[in-house]
């Protein structure tokens, strides 16, 4: 079978095809296969690996355009996923600068981690001498996010980063902010939340690639949603993103129970917005939207009950 590997020697990009007997690699992991190729066919092939047990995060690569953690992926799984294809394409993680072959540059990501103010700022009641207290429930809340191994698999697939990384950060950076903001020992969750807001929190496009690919079952997208909710709760709710989310909520709870597209545009960007008005006009021209809807749609059947339910949930969970 064949492996087509995307290579970069520091100057030029090219593809190289390696032919391997299936029986030599079928019991191996993806990382094992790369090691096999390097040690038997071509020692100039570069990639990184350290622990080979899915904890150091060094070995993320893409297979057929999707990111995998090399040492945590069995070849048999790939055979199954890609229906016994006899050619695989292996490439470096996307959304990183490639340094060589399958090796990418981690420095920008580390700098992004700095932006969300890493490190716990503990509550005043705790001290360096005596440590902190935390109950099981508070611990359980954050421990999943602590599983992040900085492998970059989520970031590789992030559609927002691909479109433009200048106003955004890797999904795991938001996960790191989340875990600090939601730590019961933390003095002020807003230290990290605010930093997340300032660095693109509202720009996530909800593509859920991050959630889907993470080998540690972390959902960057859900952590982003969590941080947004926290920011809104704490009054950090100005700007287009919060207004957009809020209008869905307003329609659901305060208005008809259903979303109104035109109100959405107006609430998000304000009545004077020309840009979106253009869209609304496109919609109306296509006959898709009743301009009168702007004055309130029809309330859904049972909306009062829905509001009651939500109020009850809110009351029960008041902090």
């Amino acid at each position: 079978m064949k492996f087509i590997i995307d290579r970069f020697d520091g100057k030029k990009n090219y593809q190289q095809t390696y032919t391997v007997e299936k029986q030599d690699i079928e019991a191996l992991t993806l990382l094992g296969t790369l090691l096999f190729i390097k040690q038997h066919l071509d020692l100039t092939l570069n990639f990184t690996a350290s622990c080979r047990m899915a904890i150091c995060g060094a070995c993320g690569v893409r297979v057929n355009g999707h990111a995998y953690l090399g040492c945590d992926t069995k070849m048999t799984e790939l055979f199954e996923e890609y229906k016994d294809a006899d050619t695989f394409r292996i490439s470096p993680l996307a959304n990183y600068t490639v340094l060589s072959d399958l090796v990418v540059d981690w420095e920008p990501a580390i700098e992004n981690l700095r932006k969300i103010k890493p490190g716990l700022v503990a509550k005043d009641e705790f001290s360096e001498k005596e440590g902190c207290r935390q109950n099981q429930e508070q611990y359980d809340r954050i421990v999943g996010q602590w599983d992040c191994i900085l492998c970059g698999v989520c970031a590789s697939e992030c559609n927002k980063l691909t479109a433009d990384h200048s106003d955004y950060m890797e999904p795991f950076v938001f996960t790191h902010a989340w875990k600090l903001a939601n730590d019961s020992r933390s003095k002020d969750p807003m230290i990290h939340t605010k930093a997340a807001v300032m660095n693109g929190l509202w720009n996530c496009v909800h593509c859920h690639e991050c959630t889907n690919r993470c080998p540690k079952h972390i959902s960057g997208a859900e952590d982003i949603a969590g941080l947004r909710a926290l920011a809104m709760r704490k009054g950090l709710n100005s700007g287009v993103g919060p207004a957009h989310a809020k209008s869905f909520y307003t329609d659901l709870v305060e208005d008809s129970g259903r979303l109104n597209e035109i109100r959405l545009a107006l609430r998000t960007e304000g009545v004077s917005t020309v840009a979106r008005a253009g869209t609304a006009i496109t919609l109306m021209r296509a006959g898709k939207m009743n301009p009168l809807e702007i004055f309130g749609g029809h309330e859904i059947e049972g909306h009062k009950d829905l509001v009651k339910m939500i109020e009850a949930a809110k009351a029960a969970n008041k902090e």
């Binding site: 949603a225 909710a229 957009h244 869905f248 909520y249 129970g257 979303l259 909306h303 939500i310 809110k314």
Partner: peptide, 14 residues
Amino acid sequence: SCCGASQAQDVDPL
């Protein structure tokens, strides 16, 4: 009712 459109949870997941 509206499903929240993967937006309303940013305001109130519950």
